[in-house]
Each structure stands twice: as C-alpha cells, then as structure tokens.
Design a protein around this nucleic acid. Structure first.
Lengths: 335, 335
DNA sequence: CTGAAAGCGCTTACAG
DNA sequence: CTGAAAGCGCTTACAG
C-alpha cells in the first residue's frame, strides 16, 4: 500500500493559488477574506481532504494551550471512575477540549509516571485522584500555569482546587443509622489504608462506633472483601452489622453474607451506590455519592482556574445521601 | 500570581553550557554523550524542572507519530464501554501511547464531529464503535496511514480491521435456549434499530423464533425498556419469555417484571453480562461478551496495522458464552 | 563526543 | 483584503 501523502496548508495554498496566511484565515474563520477567495481555498482544502494539524498550530499559538485535559482515575472500568470520567468529558467537550485518560488502579507507584507522561504532553489541566501521600512534586508545574484539580481525594503538600465529599461525616452518619436500628457491634471493611478517602471513612466510623470496633483494611478487590467478611462473620464474636467503605468491598461483603445465609440477619450499609442495589434481597442501603457530578465539578474548576490563575483556591464539598433501602435497617440485637 | 516561565531545551543547554543537540541526546538517552557532560545536562534539567514538549518533538520526528489513540465509544459510564476503554488503555500504555476518549451515546450525528476532532489531533489510530450507516468518509484518512479499527460493530463502506462477536448466532442460541425450556412466545426488546449490533441480534432472534414473534426496538434507556416491557406484559397475548438485546434494556425489563410480580413466571435472557446478575432473584441468564478483551483486541489490531500497513485486513470474532443462571430456565407453557 | 543549520506545520506580527 | 518573514520547541541530517 502506498501511503497517500497528507496535505499541508502550503499544499492548499498552492492549489488555491493564494498565500499561506490566506489559507490560515479561511481555515480559522477569521472572516477578513473575500468570499471568492474563501471559496477557492475551501474547495482546494476539500479536494485535498486537508485537515490542519492541531498541535503544529498550538506550538506557535500565543496562548500555548493544547486544549487537552489529563485525567487520572482509579479504573475507568469501575462504575465510579466511569461516571467521574464522563462528567469530565462532558464539560471538556463543551469547552472544546479533549481528555486523555489514565487508570492507575489506586497504585501508589503509578501516580508519578502517569502524571509525568501527561505533563510531557502539555495538558492544560490535570484532574487527579491522588494515591501517593504527597503531591508537592506538582508545585512547580502549578506555578507554570497548569491547572491542577484533585478529585475525590485531597492532596498533600500542595494548595490546589479540590472536589470531595465529606467522607468522615457521611460515614459517621451511616454508623449512627445502624446504631439507631439496634446495632452496637459494627465492623468496618475498608480498602487501601493509605488512601485519603479510606482514612476519612475510617475516622468517621471510629468517631461514631463507640466501644466495640472491628476494622479490616486494605481490601483491594471484591474477592478479598469476600474473604475478609467471611472471616469476620465466621470468627469469634461476629459483628451484627457491617459498614463497607467502597462499592467493590460492599459487593464482596454481600456475596459473603449470601454464602453464609446471613443477608437477613446481619445489617449492611455501603459507601457508594451501585446499579441494582435496589433489586437485591434485601435491597442495599448505601451512602450515595454523585460521581458524575464530581467529574463535572472538577472539570469546571479546572477551566475556572485556567481562565483566572489568581482566583482563590476552591475546595468544593459535594453532598452525599443516605439511601435507605432495607439492608441497613435490619434490626440489631438491642431492638 | 506570576506564572513561572517554562524551561525549554535551549534554556537547559545555556545553563549546562552545551549545545542544544547535546541536551536532546541526553534527554532521549541516545548514549553518545560523555558521562560528565550528561551529568551536567541532567543537573541543569532538574534544576529548571525541564520537561520536553512531546508534540514539538513529534512535529519534526521522522515517523510523525503522536503516540495517541483516539477512542470513540458509546458511554464510558456504561460498564460495557468502560471495560472496552480499559482494554484499549492497557494495551496503549504498554506501547507508550496515550488514549483520547470520547463518548457519543450511540448518537448518529455525533460520530462525524467527534472523529473529525480526533483526526485534527493527528491520532495514529482511531478505534471506533460506529453509529452511522456509512464510514466511507474515512477511506482517505485510512490511505494516509491512520490505523482504523472498528470495535463492537462492523463499519459500512470501508475495508478495515474489526473486532466483533457473532451477535446473530449468539442471539439465535439464546432464543433456542428459551425454546428448549418450553417457550414459543418470545418477545425481542432491542435498542436503536439502526445500529449494526441491534440488527444482528434481531436477525438472530428472527431466525430462531419461529411463527410467534414480537419486536420492540429503539429502546435507548433503562426507563424506555421498562415501559416497553410493561406494555408487552400487560397487553393482550403477552409473551412467556423475553430476549433483551443489551444491558440497559435487560435491567429495564427486570424492573418491569418485578413491578408486575412476574420474575418467576416470565423467562428472560439478556445480551451482555452485568455485575450482580447472579445475585438477583432469579439470577439472570445472559449472553456474555468480554468487553475488556474487545478493547484489548482492537488496540492490538491498531498497533499491528501501524507496524505493517500492508497486512491483510483482520476481522476478529471474539466468543460469547451463554451463562445459565436461572431466569432463562424458567419453564414455559409447553413444559 | 559535540554542535550549528535547517525545517516540521502552523500562527504571529507586520507591511502593503 | 492579502502575503512574506520569523519563529514556536524540538529532531534531522550533517559536519567537525
């Protein structure tokens, strides 16, 4: 196969019999070109199937923007990250920007290389769900005008825009909800202990749980959550209720309750809503976040920051809702 | 805030007291630089927090590659598209490429503008889930060496690499499965009639359904599928089984069966597996695809094409599995 | 082992 | 309304 050469602006100019700058004017709709000339240029461009090279233009353009947002999430295939991504994408496309997406599976060691790669590509903004315990390596990049927005988790070592929910409050409320239904022996099942969200949810749990506490952390998959729940429920002194800190953990715990035939005996409240939670038996009570809105808000903050680098840093705390469905209202031993 | 200027290769060269080309050699690990000079350059680069501009380099580089893949899916927030995206992303990142993602919600009129935008950014490869009934507008782009891979649905008017499953076969098998359990009155609930996948699944259904057929199409959301299923089940001559053509349609139908208390009477087989299908009552029998593998395969074909533009076009048909769980085995009136 | 010159495909700044 | 010159930040091709 012979590769057909790609037409450049110069080729279009030659075919239309005009100068390079005139083609540029027509392509960019600058308007100050006579109708007849513009038509000739457009015809030549169409004939050559000319498409301007966006990045070549960006190189010389005075704003030096790539109209690209770099997005770093846990895993696009997880419904939570998927919804965040869609929120970012929708705002970006409204503003004419494209989105480069990267999943880091909440692995601490992948944050830096992935961020570095995105900065190498000169993204205007970086929307990051951080995993490391320090983001100060981004301070110099921020000083150069790259918009930095942290989504879902707060950063450490840098003062930047953030979109989060009040994880500790929502978790404490979930625990109190279980207590109101007669539970005192409430176990916490959580994911990676080093993540800010996990720490906050644990803090909320501990602040409300009272004397009896039981904590299992670092559950990074449905199956590890399943194993952990099984161990807890079959072990000595089992809890009468579970508070699970994340959607995969919740689902793993539900599978364990099923396996043991305990779905109607052990109460459960999960952090994060998920599809079909209302059709399970019992339906699952959850702390719902709005991941799509988290994504939208993060992207909006990014564009606000690009528009005005001097605006005050904004910490946006989005609401959560306790969605009462049944699993969290199973009566405890004290009722 | 004063924006700190971004260092260029020229700045690093000046600080290190070497020529521009020497910095380029060190940054790109070309190796032919003395250890002492390399160290001086690296120190200067670190001091300035220098990061090369990837696209500036790409402009002059002889391969003219942007190491970017453009991905167009239905909706990243849908678990099917999310898994496809992750498959693409994993292969791309193994090969050092980034992924620009776009959701078009299977809207016919958004395919072209989104594709055009990605080509404007000179993606090396475009992985596209097509929605229009014609992709011949991409032929000239293909001739210029852009790798084109169609994922999930076949294109029209262009000869290019494709990753699909055998939708018609799998659908016919699903219908025969219901028939084997005593059903003859099987209704088809499908999404947008103009999509290739919808057409193929309908074709499979019709080829196996026999005399009694009932077809509702153009269900684009869970709620429209809910309404359609309700209408069918409450109307005259209701079906004894449903075959639903896609995950959202399946879930809408399940909600309708619930609302009518028919989950144990009307059988159901859905196309696409989904999280928690096994925990519903009854558990849902589905035709499972492997969306992550579809994404991986599409990305692999894209890189294969880039490596060898002359290789024969490859149509990769990935397997599906009928996952028997209960809803599809409810006995029909003939049993 | 090192560097000066040219140029990728555009936009900018300027002149006519 | 139109176009020639310069240059964005790099890599290429070449010379020393």
């Amino acid at each position: 196969m012979t590769v057909r050469p790609r037409a450049t602006m110069r080729d279009v100019a030659a075919l239309a019999g005009v100068g390079l700058k005139t083609v540029s004017r027509v392509i960019n709709d600058e308007g100050t070109v006579s109708a007849a000339t513009a038509t000739r240029v457009r015809r030549a461009a169409a004939q050559l199937d000319y498409r301007p090279d966006f990045y070549a233009g960006a190189l010389k353009r005075s704003d030096r923007k790539t109209r690209t947002i770099g997005l770093v999430v846990g895993n696009v295939a997880n419904p939570f990250s998927g919804a965040v991504s869609r929120g970012v994408e929708d705002v970006a496309s409204e503003r004419g920007s494209a989105v480069l997406i990267s999943s880091v599976d909440d692995e601490v060691d992948r944050e830096y290389p992935v961020v570095d790669h995105l900065l190498h590509r000169r993204v205007d903004a970086l929307i990051l769900t951080p995993t490391r315990d320090d983001q100060s390596y981004l301070v110099r990049e921020q000083e150069r005008g790259t918009a930095l927005v942290f989504a879902d988790r707060r950063p450490v070592g840098i003062h930047a825009d953030v979109v989060v929910v009040d994880n500790a409050d929502a978790s404490a409320a979930a625990v109190r909800h279980l207590q109101a239904h007669g539970h005192r022996e409430i176990a916490y099942l959580g994911d990676q202990a080093l993540l800010w969200t996990a720490q906050e949810r644990l803090r909320g749990y501990l602040s409300a749980a009272g004397d009896w506490t039981r904590v299992v952390q670092d559950l990074r998959s449905e199956s590890s959550a399943y194993d952990a729940a099984l161990g807890l429920l079959e072990g000595p002194n089992p809890p009468s209720a579970l508070f699970t800190s994340q959607n995969l953990v919740t689902i793993g715990a539900i599978r364990a309750l099923r396996a043991l035939g305990l779905t109607d005996r052990v109460a459960l409240v999960g952090f994060d809503d998920f599809e079909l939670a209302d059709l399970l038996d019992p339906p699952v009570t959850v702390v719902r976040q709005e991941p799509y809105e988290i994504g939208r808000a993060a992207a909006e903050l990014a564009f606000d920051r690009l528009a005005d680098p001097d605006r005050p840093v904004e910490i946006r705390v989005l609401p959560t809702t306790l969605v009462v469905r049944g699993s969290g209202e199973l009566p405890g031993p004290l009722r």
